[in-house]
């Protein structure tokens, strides 16, 4: 993932890799977000033009889905499950403790740009909760202490 603001040509190149698919918009958005960490505003008119959509239609899709960000997340993204199965084994207390450890609200990022903590509704780890995911890596039977210290160790 690059941190430089993307150039229009980079966006066009990413669109090019997915545009042959049937219903290419979500794959295009995923490709852009995975390369740049978010969907920059400047990408919307380019996508719209390529797909023959209006900019509003593209914006409508981007804003509908929880995954797509309009600004980059911090360097590390932590998702803590707060669905029922994890709640039954103490996910709410865990979430509160980890958020307060870092002085954050849900969806918040630390000022040093290191950590974004988000709620997630189910990671499919319902028999080994509370569950979390750090940068796509799954964690089961998390405790507030183990998770916080793991997060402290991230650069």
């Amino acid at each position: 993932m690059t941190t430089q603001p993307p150039q229009p040509d980079e966006i066009r190149a990413l669109i090019e890799t997915e545009v042959h698919r049937e219903g290419p918009l979500l794959p295009i958005l995923h490709a852009i977000q995975s390369a740049h960490g978010h969907i920059p505003d400047m990408a919307l008119p380019i996508i719209a033009e390529t797909l023959g959509l209006t900019r509003a239609e593209v914006h409508g899709v981007v804003s509908f889905y929880h995954d797509f960000r309009s600004t980059p997340a911090a360097r590390h993204v932590v998702k803590i499950c707060r669905a029922e199965a994890c709640q039954s084994v103490g996910a709410n207390a865990l979430t509160d403790a980890v958020l307060s450890h870092f002085g954050l609200d849900a969806h918040g990022s630390t000022p040093d740009g290191r950590l974004t903590i988000e709620p997630v509704y189910c990671l499919g780890l319902c028999a080994c909760g509370p569950a979390a995911m750090i940068d796509g890596k799954v964690i089961g039977r998390a405790s507030a202490e183990s998770l916080s210290s793991r997060l402290e160790a991230l650069a």
Partner: peptide, 27 residues
């Protein structure tokens, strides 16, 4: 082929999934 969702629970509903697959809002 595989298609990847984007964090919308409602896309588990079949018609909403189809909209999402087509590249629309998952309505």
């Amino acid at each position: 082929e595989v298609r990847v969702g984007a964090g919308a629970y409602v896309c588990g509903e079949e018609t909403s999934l189809l909209n999402s697959l087509e590249g629309k809002r998952g309505v």
